[in-house]
């Protein structure tokens, strides 16, 4: 465990807290992509199947359960709970996620570590996580202006990815047996998707002002 990895995980947890606060306290899921949240739920449920047979640390196992529970709770609230379910707009949040899930499933079957069923599912979850933010980014793009909490949510997720990238670099140079090409490739793609958002986030938050983020 290094500081980048730890801060990355904390920033990931922070993103869940921000989103849960926004939809429970604000009673609205406006601006939040249920599609993206459903993709994250699929990602965590498939990747953490190994909760039942792999144990590396209490920290890991605990966070795996937290991630599955938080993403499920978010999907449940937006899809089924009043009044939040009436604030979700399916016409705006209509990214065709089958075009993300399908290719990721094929990639998982073809490109994985050792051709076992779990390695295929695991690789699928890595590929899907890389693109899971796309419906959210498209939704923000359509709206043009991003509410503060929503922008903090996306920023926390972006920070998590950036910190994981630094964690990989750190581990590569400090550990003898540390090589994971699939994760590095997908993670770099994923981090890249946030670059444009971060530019606009920085533009609207600099100078201590808390203006909403405007996207062109």
């Amino acid at each position: 465990m290094n500081i980048f990895r730890f801060l990355g995980d904390m920033s990931h947890i922070l993103s869940f807290v921000i989103l849960l606060l926004k939809i429970t306290q604000g009673k609205s899921a406006a601006g939040i992509s249920l599609r993206t949240q459903e993709l994250y739920m699929i990602v965590f449920c498939s990747r953490y199947l190994d909760l039942f047979w792999n144990f590396s640390s209490l920290y890991n196992s605990f966070l795996k359960v937290v991630f599955i529970a938080c993403s499920s709770a978010i999907v449940y609230i937006i899809r089924f709970k009043s009044p939040q379910k009436d604030t979700w707009n399916p016409e705006l949040d209509n990214f065709p996620i089958q075009y993300l899930i399908g290719p990721c499933a094929v990639a998982g079957l073809l490109i994985n570590q050792d051709w076992t069923p779990f390695e295929m599912i695991w690789a699928f979850s890595i590929y899907l996580e890389a693109v899971a933010i796309l419906p959210q980014l498209f939704l923000l793009q359509k709206q043009g202006e991003v509410e503060n909490l929503t922008s903090h949510y996306v920023a926390a997720l972006g920070a998590y990815r950036g910190l994981y990238l630094m964690n990989w670099v750190y581990r590569y140079f400090t550990e003898d047996d540390y090589l994971q090409r699939i994760v590095w490739f997908a993670g770099t793609v994923q981090t890249g998707l946030y670059i444009d958002f971060f530019y606009h986030y920085y533009q609207s938050k600099r100078g201590g002002l808390s203006r909403p983020v405007k996207l062109p």
Partner: peptide
């Protein structure tokens, strides 16, 4: 030569 890492990340 480096070997593949185990699954100790989230």
């Amino acid at each position: 030569k480096k070997k593949k890492a185990g699954k100790d990340e989230l």
